[in-house]
Design a protein around this nucleic acid. Structure first.
Lengths: 138, 138
DNA sequence: GTCATTGCAAATGCTTTGCAGTGCC
DNA sequence: GGCACTGCAAAGCATTTGCAATGAC
């Protein structure tokens, strides 16, 4: 976390209260907030922070490779601070909860050469869908 | 195709010129148009068709399970008529071209029980990313 | 003839942008 | 003290909705 701020300062980032607060909100595991959620949580810590600044900051963090954009539902994008460890997502079809998961094996290996259409395939994103424990008992 | 229209009529659909045209646009392999592209192509065949009708029709076709929504980039949703055969997508990172692909093996099997967090996992969506032949030579 | 469906236009939700003022380095 | 950064408000897309007119059955 303060690693993050250190790293960013090393890249010439001005360390403002707004950016510090956005970074603080985006800390932890299984965190996947929308820009609006980030703004709401940031505003609890720094009431005058504007939506535009949150969007700007999120965009910069994505460009710098410090966080990832996730779109699991075609609605608002979500932001995932876990950008430094490869992982995939498990999404609850009912409540939308997202968990970071780590499948075993080489995910790229499943795509045969004759199904690659001459592409140089470099990456793969996987979204598992199911019903979470909370929603299946309710 | 006319299978599709037949099937829909059997489900009580009124067969209007607009719906016929939307169905016609969404015919073929590796078709992944945005709503706006569907509207543009439909308007070539039926100039007075409105965007709202295209959106309505696409939404109904999705509900009926005849086409699928695909969001590969967090921007506009795309619509895939290939809803009756399980498949995944291969996307060009440069030009955005999308191809339907068929990985081998059981994609769900890669997620160990201890990584399922108690979810009842039912489905999996995979997006492979790479550079297409056209973009890699250019 | 009835009622689902259409087209228009306005409204909504998410995100980006222009620009004057502020404050980090 | 300069210039990157912020906040505000307005603009921009993609999509949805309300409602009167239309046309498939």
């Amino acid at each position: 976390m303060s690693d993050l701020l250190e790293r960013l300062r090393g890249r010439g980032w001005r360390l403002t209260a707004q950016r510090r607060v956005v970074a603080e909100v985006l800390d932890g595991d299984h965190v996947h907030y929308t820009a609006d959620e980030v703004h709401a949580k940031a505003a609890e810590l720094l009431p005058e922070i504007s939506r535009a600044t949150v969007y700007n900051t999120l965009g910069e963090l994505v460009s710098l490779g410090e966080i990832m954009e996730v779109s699991t539902d075609g609605r608002a994008k979500r932001y995932d601070p876990n950008a430094h460890h490869a992982h995939q997502h498990l999404v609850c079809s009912r409540c939308g909860t997202i968990r970071d998961v780590h499948p075993v094996g080489d995910l790229l290996a499943g795509l045969p050469a004759e199904e690659r259409f001459g592409f140089q395939v470099a990456a793969v994103e996987v979204t598992y869908r199911g019903v979470c424990p909370g929603c299946s008992t309710a």
